[in-house]
Design a binder for these strands. Structure first.
Length: 270
DNA sequence: ATACCGACCTGTCAGC
DNA sequence: TGCTGACAGGTCGGTA
């Protein structure tokens, strides 16, 4: 579900609403555990901790925690998978289906992790989490080009590879390739310097515009307040198969690349 | 080392 | 109405 702009929106919302609050108790759903750390360890790390800060790293939400008792620091890492939500609600609000974690806050509210498909992951760590790859909004044009220029895989598959860049998913891969005028199936190592530079610029622009719009709500993404984003209204390729290209009116095509639905303009993208 | 492909889950929607 | 299959913002592990 959520890619960089959506996770950024959620993390910013959480930072505004719960930083400084304290987690008093934690309820963890029983059967299926979307957990990378043992449930007991997660509960132990969260309970009694103050939330110092909430931020995004790649597609992960990072909660910086500080223990009340021994002042030790922990990081609670949340990956939302395809359908995960992290919501701040009143304690009275009805608990939705597929809630897997509820953290009661000192303020009386609840922080709830809800994930129907259970692709999301929760983890607690003591060491700094930097994510697997580079940040698309921070990387220089030269470093960006260096990541891709020897890769034999299709450029779209390379954009989705979180070990290179993290945070780019299916929507923003398609949107940035459209803006850069590059076909998704092109091998990354076939792109010219100029094309890589265009892609770097296009990707940053798309991500920044999407963050400004609060992310894309294609089906069920909502921010920490339960509000939808509206960048989907500005998509130029993703989800527009059969519709006229906004630049040249050619019909947008849909193919499969790296196992993912992929949208592009056969005329504008070379 | 790299790259496909199914698996992991549930919900929704189109087609019959 | 109801069934079946395809598909969905993501990642992982096995295999070629």
């Amino acid at each position: 579900m959520p890619e960089l702009p959506e996770v950024e929106t959620i993390a910013n919302g959480l930072q505004k609403r719960v930083s400084g609050d304290r987690i008093e108790s934690v309820w963890l759903g029983s059967k299926p555990e979307p957990l990378k750390s043992p449930a007991a360890e997660i509960a132990r790390a969260l309970e009694g901790s103050r939330i110092d800060k909430v931020r995004r790293v790649g597609k992960h939400i990072v909660f910086d925690l500080r223990s009340r008792t021994d002042k030790s620091r922990r990081q609670w890492i949340v990956h939302l998978g395809m359908t995960g939500r992290m919501l701040v609600t009143s304690a009275e609000a009805e608990l939705p289906r597929h809630a897997h974690l509820v953290a009661k806050l000192a303020s009386g509210r609840e922080l709830r992790f809800v994930d129907p498909r259970r692709f999301g992951r929760l983890e607690v760590r003591q060491t700094e989490f930097n994510g697997p790859g580079a940040e698309p909004l921070l990387i220089s044009s030269e470093d960006f080009a260096r990541l891709f220029h020897r890769r034999a895989a299709p450029i779209k598959a390379s954009l989705l590879n979180q070990n290179l860049l993290h945070g780019v998913g299916n929507i923003y891969a398609d949107e940035s390739l459209f803006r850069a005028g590059i076909r998704p199936r092109r091998r990354a190592n076939s792109l010219t310097r100029a094309e890589l530079a265009r892609l770097h610029t296009a990707l940053r622009e798309v991500l920044q515009e999407a963050i400004a719009a609060g992310g894309s709500s294609v089906s069920d993404y909502v921010d920490a307040d339960g509000e939808a984003g509206f960048f989907q209204l500005q998509h130029r390729a993703y989800g527009r198969e059969g519709q006229p290209c906004l630049v040249c009116k050619t019909k947008i095509k849909k193919i499969v690349v790296a196992g993912r639905g992929t949208h592009y303009c056969p005329k504008c993208q070379k």
